[in-house]
């Protein structure tokens, strides 16, 4: 029983982190409808940049993290401006966006592996420690993951409360109508990329703190995040965050019944069958932004 409790608690924390990644992917996917796999490259780049600045150049931790935010945002924006926008201008088929995204992701994986090696790097400046918690205990990194909800709340508040956020919701729902009432679609897309990419930084810090970073980490995280966004139903940021939270718990609880390693099977089997059975997501239109 205490094992189950521990696992559920772990699931709550990992699920919170997934929720943040789902929101960072969902901002972009909901608004632009681009299945932005290259988001995994942004996640990886942010993680390796912090590692490089703090571990190699001995910058203070806070400064490394703060600097990573605009850099990550700039990389996301560069992908939009350098690749997706020209493709849109040329009316390229859907497939072209996806291939570009895939290409950027594997270029990034190749770069990370060439520069930092294929193995795991860890943030030695953020040591892992167990925090006693009543009858059980929990790694400090996992407890910190609960802070992900603060960033989720910030993102949702931005989308709900600001003028740009309103534009983003309008473009996500009906791009044609949004354009006809004067919303600058291209600018709204760009802001989505900036926001979504910046949000990867707190997420990747928590992730690497807990389990280290490999060239494939970005892809792995992104796959769960995108799965959550699609399972949630692409009706806004909250549905994806809730689905991601649920996936984190399901993954953790699955450890009771299945050996570790089968979690991917559980997550992606769920994704696949949701797509087949409920292609518009499990929540219908229950959560709007």
């Amino acid at each position: 029983m205490s094992l189950l409790v521990t696992l559920v608690l772990l699931g709550l924390t990992v699920g919170s982190l997934y929720a943040l990644f789902a929101v960072s992917f969902g901002v972009i996917y909901n608004v632009t409808h681009i299945f932005h796999l290259a988001h995994g490259a942004v996640i990886g780049a942010a993680g390796y940049l912090i590692f490089f600045l703090v571990s190699r150049l001995d910058w203070p931790v806070w400064l490394g993290i703060v600097v990573a935010v605009p850099v990550a945002a700039a990389i996301g924006a560069a992908v939009e401006l350098g690749f997706y926008r020209p493709l849109r201008r040329r009316n390229a088929p859907h497939v072209a966006f996806f291939l570009t995204s895939v290409g950027i992701l594997i270029v990034a994986e190749g770069l990370f592996g060439t520069i930092f090696g294929p193995g795991t790097v860890t943030y030695t400046f953020l040591p892992l420690a167990a925090v006693p918690l009543g009858p059980t205990s929990m790694p400090n990194a996992n407890l910190a993951m609960l802070s992900a909800w603060a960033f989720v709340a910030l993102a949702v508040a931005y989308v709900l409360a600001t003028r740009t956020g309103r534009f983003m919701r309008a473009v996500a729902d009906t791009p044609v109508v949004a354009a006809s009432v004067g919303v600058d679609i291209e600018r709204t897309y760009l802001i989505s990329f900036l926001l979504g990419s910046a949000l990867t930084v707190p997420g990747v810090v928590l992730y690497v703190w807990a389990q280290g970073l490999t060239p494939l980490s970005g892809l792995n995280v992104l796959l769960v995040a995108s799965a959550a966004v699609i399972i949630g139903g692409r009706t806004g940021l909250l549905s994806g965050a809730i689905a991601a939270f649920g996936l984190g718990i399901v993954q953790a609880v699955a450890l009771v019944f299945l050996p570790s390693g089968w979690q991917d099977v559980v997550v992606f089997t769920i994704l696949f069958f949701v797509l087949v059975v409920r292609p518009n997501g499990v929540f219908g239109r229950a959560f709007r932004w």
Partner: peptide
Amino acid sequence: AAQLQLLLYGLILVTIVRFWPN
């Protein structure tokens, strides 16, 4: 080599789609 192969394939893919989307 394994990492560079990925890099190479990715660059080829991105370049082709970027300039010849069809």
